[in-house]
């Protein structure tokens, strides 16, 4: 689905990502950890193709196509979708109108989708105008449900969301990634086979892991990826030791040693 090769990205002339390699298979969900300022959001923005994020080296291959320099709308039309953490307000544009545009002509029951994320009362409101943290998240998810992307990029789906909303957000993210009706059970194997939508999720604290099926995760530190492991293990480790061990790991890497992440 997605292959990132030796990606270097600068923001405003400052190098932020320094050689990222990452592969995400169809139906796979990958979890990205890392402290503030490590470059996680930069990776998502660069994948989506934001103007201020300049790829200085490396490649982004999506569905077999080199999209390193493709415009954003082309990436979106190819099936990349992104949930924004702090989306801009667009005055005079009702949310319902934007959701319809996300569907790009596909017949979509916007009201039904909106009910799913308890957003039907807000459809007439201008996009992100005075939305609370939870409302922003639900609006983003609603747009993504209409867009039906094949690769979903989530920047901290749990940030600014209260406990009640967390369950709703979590289940909706799962729904987006599962592409399977709620009432359809299926064996684990069947579910896995059926799952075609991939995800790349940034999380700090991990509540989203309660809801999604994610086998792989990695830590971003100073613009580099290290410590690939099961997301739960990474989370436990960070909770216990913080990110200091990542620094040690990367320092070891710099000296040309074979560095193993000291996962217990």
């Amino acid at each position: 689905m997605l292959e990132i090769r030796n990606l270097h990205v600068s923001v405003g002339g400052t190098p932020v990502l320094k050689g990222i390699d990452l592969k995400i298979a169809p139906g796979e969900t990958f979890i990205l950890f890392g402290p503030n300022g490590s470059g996680k959001t930069t990776l998502l923005m660069a994948l989506m193709g934001f103007g201020d994020y300049t790829v200085t080296k490396g490649q982004i291959i999506y569905k077999g196509q080199d999209i390193t320099h493709a415009p954003m709308y082309e990436r979106a039309r190819l099936g990349m979708g992104m949930s924004f953490q702090r989306p801009p307000t667009i005055h005079g544009l009702p949310t319902e109108h934007l959701v319809r545009m996300c569907a790009r002509g596909r017949e979509t029951d916007v009201r039904r989708l909106a009910e799913r994320v308890h957003f039907d009362q807000f459809l007439e409101r201008d996009v992100n105008a005075g939305f609370s943290g939870g409302e922003i998240k639900r609006s983003e998810l609603l747009q993504l449900m209409a867009q039906q992307p094949d690769l979903v990029l989530f920047d901290e789906p749990e940030s600014g969301v209260d406990l009640e909303n967390m369950s709703l957000v979590g289940h909706t993210v799962r729904y987006l990634l599962d592409s399977m009706p709620d009432d359809c059970q299926g064996t684990l194997r069947e579910r896995k086979q059926r799952r075609k939508t991939s995800g790349l999720i940034i999380t700090h604290s991990g509540p989203i892991l309660e809801y999604v099926v994610a086998d792989r995760g990695q830590v971003m530190y100073h613009g580099k990826l290290c410590c690939e492991a099961k997301p739960r293990e990474i989370l436990d480790h960070i909770a216990r030791y913080g990110y200091q061990e990542c620094l040690r790991c990367l320092a070891g890497d710099m000296y040309g040693k074979i560095a193993e992440a000291p996962l217990s």
């Binding site: 954003m72 709308y73 979106a76 667009i90 544009l93």
Partner: peptide
């Protein structure tokens, strides 16, 4: 860029924003 991330090209995004404005 927000609208472009949803698949609108610049010729669609600009009038949409102007209309809202």
């Amino acid at each position: 860029e927000y609208l472009m991330a949803r698949g609108l090209d610049e010729n669609e995004a600009t009038p949409t924003i102007v209309r809202g404005f």
